[in-house]
Simulated scan of single mutants.
Amino acid sequence: MARTLKQAIDEHRPLVVPSIYDGISALLVRDLGFHAAYIGSYATGAAKYGVPDIGYIGLEDMADQVRRLAPVAGVPIIVDGEGGWGNPLHVARSVQVLERAGAAATHIEDHVFGKHLIGKSHILPVGQAVDKIKAAVDARDSTNFMIIGRTDSFLTEGPAAAVDRVLAYQEAGADGVFVAGYLDAENQSRLRAEARVPIFTVDLPTRSAADHGAEGADVVLYYALAHQAAINGIRAALEVLAREGSTTSIEKELGSVVDLDAFLGIGPAREKARKYGLLD
């Protein structure tokens, strides 16, 4: 990996990080020149199993995605570490597994259950969440592997308490902080003033990456973009096929199999085959 995630964050403010969930999305991120990519449990559950993001996805699901996609994308990978899949001992092992799989960073969150199901998730006491961050920091092999402390307490405890929490995670050794939720101007200003580490956020409706950067974000995760686009594109094509019994009306938009093969690297594969005497 040519650049570390820390270097990418230093060089691009804010760093725009699209999601990947399969080989095609990983190739597109590489080809379009992005400097980092995100593998989330949301996209992983949707792509691998067709399930919502309510805790079905385990450590090995995420590690498998990293092992397969990091070499394809060729950029630092930020991976969703959920709540570390257990207590601080489990968090430590999760960090080791994800780092060895090829991730550049993981975020560890403080919710117990309820994310995406209810407005107010069940949140760990802050002391227990701090212990998870400490365990994550202690477990990594390299300081280049970033531990990001995430809070989902925004709706449960309010924005001020959410800022308190991520600042506590910073004190515990987190290399980045991430409030999952909207912060008002007062709390955004406080977080920006007191954070000594990069601030992560997700893209919010009506806001550009530049808007997020102006509000203090150093990294913007576009966690749902790739699979949202895929769902809409596949649905549109299949609706044409179901309605018309043909795809002739959208052949121009689809492109050809020749184009697809070229995107997937058939040219270099042919050259290697000729080199080794497999083709005339």
Results as ranks from 00 to 15, higher is better:
residue 4 T to S: 15
residue 4 T to L: 06
residue 8 A to C: 13
residue 15 L to C: 09
residue 16 V to I: 15
residue 17 V to T: 04
residue 18 P to S: 07
residue 22 D to Q: 05
residue 24 I to P: 06
residue 35 H to V: 02
residue 35 H to W: 06
residue 35 H to P: 00
residue 35 H to Y: 11
residue 36 A to W: 08
residue 36 A to K: 09
residue 42 Y to F: 15
residue 42 Y to Q: 01
residue 48 K to C: 05
residue 48 K to Q: 13
residue 48 K to D: 12
residue 48 K to R: 15
residue 50 G to A: 04
residue 60 E to V: 11
residue 60 E to C: 02
residue 62 M to W: 02
residue 64 D to M: 07
residue 67 R to K: 14
residue 67 R to W: 06
residue 68 R to F: 02
residue 68 R to S: 12
residue 68 R to E: 13
residue 71 P to L: 06
residue 78 I to G: 01
residue 83 G to S: 15
residue 84 G to Q: 03
residue 85 W to G: 12
residue 87 N to P: 03
residue 91 V to M: 03
residue 91 V to A: 08
residue 92 A to Q: 03
residue 95 V to M: 05
residue 101 A to P: 03
residue 107 H to C: 03
residue 111 H to F: 11
residue 115 K to V: 14
residue 118 I to G: 08
residue 123 I to W: 02
residue 124 L to K: 04
residue 126 V to K: 00
residue 126 V to A: 11
residue 127 G to D: 15
residue 127 G to Q: 11
residue 128 Q to G: 08
residue 138 D to S: 13
residue 151 T to G: 01
residue 152 D to E: 14
residue 158 G to E: 07
residue 159 P to I: 01
residue 159 P to G: 10
residue 165 R to Q: 05
residue 166 V to F: 03
residue 169 Y to E: 01
residue 178 F to L: 08
residue 183 L to F: 02
residue 188 Q to M: 11
residue 190 R to A: 03
residue 191 L to I: 04
residue 192 R to Q: 12
residue 193 A to M: 10
residue 194 E to K: 12
residue 196 R to D: 12
residue 197 V to E: 07
residue 198 P to K: 04
residue 198 P to N: 05
residue 199 I to E: 03
residue 202 V to S: 05
residue 205 P to N: 05
residue 209 A to D: 13
residue 209 A to Q: 05
residue 210 A to Y: 00
residue 212 H to M: 14
residue 214 A to S: 12
residue 215 E to M: 15
residue 218 D to A: 08
residue 219 V to G: 01
residue 222 Y to H: 15
residue 235 R to P: 00
residue 239 E to R: 14
residue 241 L to I: 00
residue 242 A to S: 13
residue 242 A to W: 13
residue 245 G to C: 09
residue 249 S to C: 04
residue 250 I to N: 07
residue 252 K to N: 11
residue 253 E to H: 07
residue 254 L to D: 06
residue 258 V to E: 14
residue 261 D to Q: 14
residue 261 D to T: 01
residue 264 L to C: 12
residue 271 E to R: 13
residue 271 E to T: 13
residue 271 E to D: 13
residue 273 A to N: 09
residue 280 D to Q: 11
